[in-house]
Amino acid sequence: MTLARHGTGPRATLAAVASQVHPVFMAPPLAASGFGAVLGGFTAPRLTLLHLLVVFWALYTAHVVDGLVDFHHRGEDDDHPLTRRGCHLALAGSTAWVFVGVVGLAILVDPVAALLSLPGWIVAILHAPRLDTHPVGATLGYPVGIGFALLGGYYVQTRTLSTTALAFAAIFVTVLAGIKVVDDATDYAYDRSIGKRTVAVVVGRDGARRLATALMGAGMTAVLALSLTGVVPRSSALAVVPFVTVALVARRADAALATKLLVRASYLFFAVLVLAVWLRPLAGVSVPDVTALGPYTYLATEVVWGAVALALVVRAGAVRAAARTVAVLYPVAYVWDWYTLTVGVFAIPMRTGVDLLGIPVEEHLFILVVPAMVVGVHELLNDESS
Rank of each mutant, 00 (worst) to 15 (best):
L329N: 03
F270T: 10
S386V: 12
L275H: 05
G207K: 03
L299F: 15
A189Y: 00
T13E: 13
L299C: 08
F172W: 09
A237D: 09
F42Q: 03
I122W: 14
I194D: 05
I359S: 07
D355Q: 11
G353E: 04
L14I: 13
T43L: 08
M350I: 01
V374G: 02
Y190H: 12
P29E: 11
W305L: 08
R46P: 03
V231Y: 04
D79C: 09
G141C: 04
K196C: 02
M26H: 13
Y334W: 15
W336P: 01
F168S: 01
V54Q: 11
H51K: 06
G317L: 11
V201Y: 03
V244W: 12
T2H: 06
T297R: 07
F172P: 00
A318D: 03
A311P: 00
P360F: 08
V277F: 13
A300N: 09
H378P: 00
G7P: 07
V369D: 00
A258K: 04
A177R: 05
T186W: 01
L268I: 01
L261E: 04
T43P: 00
H127G: 05
K180L: 08
V17R: 02
L365Y: 06
V304N: 06
L273Q: 15
T352L: 15
A138F: 00
R130C: 06
L312D: 08
P360W: 07
G104W: 09
A311V: 04
P288Y: 12
G207V: 13
M350D: 15
H22T: 14
L105H: 02
G145A: 13
A114K: 08
D183A: 14
G230P: 03
L89H: 08
Y298K: 14
A214E: 07
A167G: 06
V263K: 00
P29H: 11
L105D: 01
P135I: 02
L279K: 13
E362L: 06
A292I: 14
T186Q: 15
Q20I: 09
H88F: 13
A62I: 09
L151G: 12
M373W: 09
G217I: 10
A214G: 06
S385K: 06
L381T: 07
A212S: 14
P129R: 10
S193H: 04
A167H: 01
L151F: 12
A106M: 08
P242K: 02
A96Y: 05
G178Y: 05
G41T: 10
G147F: 12
M220K: 00
L224S: 03
P81A: 15
S266P: 07
A169D: 12
P23R: 01
L53W: 05
L226A: 07
V64F: 05
A247N: 04
P242G: 07
G219R: 11
E384M: 13
V103P: 02
V199T: 07
V38M: 05
A258S: 14
V343E: 00
E363F: 00
L381Q: 04
T221G: 03
I359G: 07
D132R: 13
T139K: 02
R209A: 12
F35Y: 12
A106D: 08
F56V: 05
W336Q: 08
V328Q: 09
T13G: 14
A333C: 06
H88A: 14
A31N: 02
T95R: 10
S193W: 08
F25I: 04
L176P: 00
V202Y: 01
V335W: 10
Q20D: 10
A253S: 14
V246E: 07
L273D: 13
G147Y: 15
R324E: 08
V303I: 15
S33D: 07
G376V: 03
L49K: 01
